[in-house]
Amino acid sequence: MSGASDQRSSTARALRDHLAGAAPFAETDVRPDGEVVVRVPPDKAVAAAEALAGFQPHPLNYLSCVSGVDRPDEDQIEVVYTVHSLPGPAKASLRVRVDRKAERPSLPSLVQVWPAADYHEREVYDLLGVWFEGHPDLRRILLAETFEGHPLRKDFVQNRPPRRRVTREDYQP
């Protein structure tokens, strides 16, 4: 166990050193389990993602999850890209924040770096209302196209329009 743990922490240190050179603007932090937390401003997200994907000898080429976190107390929405390395033990989470009060909160899409981000970013767009600029096909993925609002925002319940109940009349020919 301790051998694997040592390898994880040494990999995390190496990744942090790599980022200090390849993405000096990133604010990095290493968690006890060896995950490197990378916080970047929105306009540097693509550069940071490319730096992560270019890490050698363990390129972070496997995007396992994209989460959206609504933080109404900070007026921000945080998008977390959790990435792993298929060849090795490296793992990282790339965190980008956007102002949730904006009319159209937008972040650069990372589909060009990790193609798996396609559906995940659509889900974040669908449920939290973050527009990903440069996304090839930004549509709602879970809810109907006619749905109004983004239901996983914490204030959705207070702000949503009066809910129109589906009735049998809606489905009469």
Binding site: L143, A144, F147, P151, F156, R160, R163, R165, V166, T167, R168, D170, Y171
Partner: peptide, 12 residues
């Protein structure tokens, strides 16, 4: 809930 039909007898 925001996306659930409250009973399928609303539609058929």
């Amino acid at each position: 809930s925001y996306n659930v039909v409250d009973g399928v007898d609303k539609i058929i």
